[in-house]
């Protein structure tokens, strides 16, 4: 009896973001969620799961600074069944795990694909980091950067790779603007200037269906992904 050899994973050990699995089937779309600590990444992922889980097969990979915290939150909130949530340890360097050395995250993603196939969408949440942390294109197909109003209305003006290049920028916690003296118009203007034609969304996740703009964007991306992959 030898229990150490786990289930076989024939597609493992690939190293590209090939949209197809080796057997020719379409793999799930992988979306990264990055952004500073406390901006609401986990809340956004949770809200997305609640909104999309009825019509899509979903899974989540978390990259905690302290492993399990975010995954535990998502499990506690029961946004998805526990087997659909995996936590990856990052050795105190969350940006390394999503950008410089993505191998642990790729493992987690492939494991979920193998065990839960077919999956439509895998959300990969980065550990809270700084404004420079972005996902490797080898790990995700598209990425969302989440900042928040309460951290200062000058953040869009400051820019940085996450704010300027993410496929979607989410400016969260707009409901707090009056309390922290943030000027949403200035933030929107700065955002537009930094991102040129790239999309952004102002959200307040405390309101009903506050995640809707993000959910709509994700749905669009998934549709586009399917038509590309179907070619």
């Amino acid at each position: 009896m030898h229990l150490d050899h786990p289930v076989t994973m024939p597609h493992r050990h690939t190293h590209s973001a090939d949209p197809r699995r080796p057997d020719g089937s379409r793999r799930a779309l992988r979306i990264g969620f990055g952004g500073p600590v406390g901006s609401g990444k986990t809340a956004a992922v949770a809200a997305l799961c609640r909104t999309l889980r009825g019509r899509l097969s979903l899974a989540v990979v978390t990259n905690d600074i302290y492993t399990q915290e975010d995954a535990a939150f998502l499990r506690r909130e029961a946004v998805l069944p526990p087997e659909r949530i995996t936590a990856v340890e990052t050795g105190a360097c969350p940006h390394t795990a999503i950008r410089d050395d993505i191998s642990a995250n790729l493992e987690a993603v492939e494991q979920l694909e193998q065990e839960l196939r077919p999956l439509d969408l895998i959300l990969i949440e980065s550990g809270g980091d700084n404004l420079t942390a972005t996902f490797s294109r080898g790990l995700v197909d598209t990425q969302v950067f989440v900042i928040d109003v309460a951290s200062g209305d000058d953040i869009p003006r400051k820019g940085g790779p996450g704010i300027t290049t993410a496929d979607l920028l989410v400016v969260n916690k707009t409901d707090l603007a009056p309390y922290v003296g943030a000027d949403l118009d200035t933030m929107a203007a700065d955002t537009r200037r930094q991102r040129k034609d790239l999309p952004f969304a102002f959200t307040s996740l405390t309101t009903d269906d506050g995640i809707r703009p993000v959910a709509d964007w994700v749905t669009e991306r998934l549709t586009a992904w399917r038509s590309e992959a179907g070619r």
Binding site: E89, G91, D101, I102, A104
Partner: peptide
């Protein structure tokens, strides 16, 4: 240590 083989997350 920068070779992307996952070592950074192990102590």
């Amino acid at each position: 240590g920068r070779f992307p083989a996952g070592g950074h997350a192990h102590s």
